Simulated scan of single mutants.
Amino acid sequence: MSADLSFVADAMKQSVPWVRTTGVEFVEVAADRVVAELPDREDLRNHVGGPHAAVMFGVAETASGAVVMAAFSAELGRATPLVARSEIAYKKLALGVLRAEAVLGRAAADVVAELDAGTRPEFPVHVTITNAEGVTTGEVTVVWTLRPNR
Score class of each variant (00 low, 15 high):
Val48Ile: 15
Gly96Ser: 11
Asp40Thr: 09
Leu76Trp: 09
Pro121Cys: 13
His52Ala: 13
Asn149Gly: 08
Val125Met: 04
Pro39Met: 04
Lys13Trp: 00
Val8Tyr: 08
Pro51Tyr: 00
Thr119Asp: 10
Val135His: 12
Glu87Phe: 00
Asp32Ser: 06
Thr21Phe: 15
Thr62Val: 03
Leu115Cys: 09
Leu115His: 08
Ser86Val: 01
Ala66Met: 10
Val97Trp: 11
Arg99Pro: 08
Ala70Trp: 06
Ala107Glu: 12
Glu37Trp: 00
Ala84Lys: 15
Val112Arg: 11
Val140Trp: 05
Val29Glu: 01
Ala54Gln: 05
Ala11Glu: 14
Leu93Asn: 07
Val68Gln: 01
Arg150Ala: 13
Phe26Ile: 15
Ala31Ser: 12
Ser2Asp: 04
Val83Glu: 02
Thr128Gln: 02
Thr22Gln: 14
Glu75Phe: 13
Phe26Pro: 02
Glu139Gly: 13
Val111Ala: 11
Asp40Pro: 04
Glu61Arg: 11
Glu28Gly: 00
Val83Arg: 00
Val48Cys: 09
Ala74Ile: 03
Arg45Ile: 05
Ala84Gly: 15
Gly50Asp: 00
Pro17Glu: 15
Ala11Ile: 05
Glu87Ala: 03
Ala107Pro: 01
Tyr90Asp: 01
Val48Gln: 14
Val59Arg: 01
Arg120Ala: 09
Gly50Lys: 02
Arg147Pro: 08
Pro121Ala: 12
Glu114Pro: 04
Glu25Cys: 06
Glu133Asn: 14
Glu122Phe: 09
Ser6Ile: 12
Glu139His: 07
Thr145Val: 06
Ala66Gly: 10
Val127Ser: 07
Leu93Arg: 12
Gly50Phe: 02
Ala132Phe: 06
Val135Asp: 12
Ala108Gln: 03
Val8Asn: 05
Ile129Thr: 05
Val111Trp: 13
Asp43Ile: 03
Leu76Ala: 05
Ala84Val: 14
Arg106Val: 12
Thr62Phe: 05
Phe57Gln: 03
Ile129Leu: 12
Pro124Ser: 03
Val125Lys: 04
Ala63Ile: 07
Asn149Ile: 00
His52Ser: 09
Val67Met: 07
Arg120His: 06
Leu98Pro: 06
Ala113Val: 01
Ala89Ile: 14
Thr145Ser: 10
Asn46Ala: 03
Thr62Glu: 04
Pro148Leu: 10
Thr21Ala: 15
His47Leu: 10
Asp40Lys: 07
Val135Phe: 09
Trp144Ser: 00
Leu38Glu: 00
Thr62Pro: 02
Arg150Tyr: 07
Ala30Phe: 10
Gly134Tyr: 14
Ala74Ser: 11
Val55Glu: 03
Arg45Ser: 08
Ala54Phe: 03
Ala109Ser: 14
Val97Lys: 15
